[in-house]
Amino acid sequence: MDLSCAIVGTGVIAGFHAEALAGRARIVAATDIDAAALDAYASKWSVPSVYPTLDELLDHEKPDLVTLCTPPGLHAPQAIACLSRGVSVLCEKPPVLSLAELDAIEAATGDAFFATVFQHRFGSGAARLRGLIGDPRLGRPTTAVCHTLWFRPDEYFAVPWRGKWEIEGGGPTMGHGIHQFDLLLSVLGEWTSVVAVAARQAKPTATEDLSAAIVTFANGAVATVVNSVVSPREQSYLRFDFEHATVELDHVYGYADHNWRVTAAPGHETEIASAWAAGPSGVASGHKAQFAAVLDALSSGTAPPVTLRDTRLTVELIAAIYASAFTGASVRRGELTTDSPFYHRMDGTGAPWN
């Protein structure tokens, strides 16, 4: 099937989309409010049609897929505009500013699909580990670590939409650590409760620049999750402890097979080595891997990964981290319903430091 795609927002991330689509789908149109950036993108990637607004693009084009590369505050209205016309959407993270927006997107889907860009799910190391969940050779999961320890200088937040609840939706819990703990959830499954703290330590933002949470999972595993943009030595580190093995991932912004390490418990070395060696290999995390899976699904008429259900598990954890941090209470999954301020805004009734 010859798939067509339109790009909304032609900043840096849109270049990753174009690279991932190359050879798999035609980019038939693009739009951006910055005319110069739009023209430069169209020239670089041989995009035949450009439009000043998404509405005009949708009036003239009917692509198989629209990818959203715009600031987070625009994602929900843009996704709804596409879905209401029967056009499927692949959206950059964070996909929404709130659970309310995610539910509004779900209500608009109809026959079209909505998927979120969580590319860390698609490296072969993650696929290998997910394939071993429930395998008696590893045993049941017991504990996990998920740390996104990054650094952003003050000038990073000079971009008007960064560091603001109304446009970005949150700080590193929302826009940075989300990739790592989405991968955590894809491995360990449904979470049940969270207790958390959040702080504004150093950065010139309205949002937090640090959060830390303890997350309990339905399978009994307990994970610590730290999200930071105040850590000069950057590291993205995930550790999964099972009864018979520890599996670690150590990288920064993307991983390959060599970033994974497996340590067997004494007496389990042979079976753990055999189990790990039998899994898939050779695929790095990144847009290319996820876009291939999305395009394969669209070609077959099935829902592309990552689905709204998958996305909700991650977005609800974000909301629960903020709710716990700002109220001082443990928050259970499913607790943040429409009568909760944290359903409508990630900062609920307002961050304590504001």
Rank of each mutant, 00 (worst) to 15 (best):
A277T: 08
S211P: 04
D250S: 10
G282M: 06
F291N: 03
E316F: 02
T302H: 08
V230Y: 06
R200M: 12
R233K: 08
A265L: 05
V247P: 03
A277S: 11
H258C: 14
V225D: 06
Q235K: 12
I272D: 14
A293P: 04
A256I: 09
V306M: 06
H244P: 09
A303H: 09
D209Y: 02
S281N: 15
P304W: 04
V315P: 00
S285D: 06
G301K: 09
F217H: 03
Q201W: 14
R309K: 09
V247I: 14
V252Y: 13
V247T: 05
V230R: 00
K203H: 14
Q235R: 12
V215D: 12
E208H: 03
A278R: 12
A212T: 05
W260Y: 14
A264M: 08
T224C: 15
V247F: 02
A273R: 10
A265P: 04
P266I: 01
S228N: 09
L298Y: 03
E243M: 05
R261S: 13
N219P: 07
V225G: 07
V226A: 05
E316M: 01
E243L: 07
F242L: 05
R261C: 09
A221E: 07
R312V: 09
A265E: 12
G286L: 03
S299G: 15
S211D: 08
Q201F: 13
A202D: 15
G282L: 11
Q201G: 13
A319D: 06
R233A: 14
A264F: 08
R261K: 14
H287Y: 13
A202I: 05
T270C: 04
K288P: 11
V262R: 01
G267A: 04
L308Y: 01
A275H: 02
S300A: 14
S274K: 13
A303G: 10
D310Y: 07
K203V: 02
A196I: 02
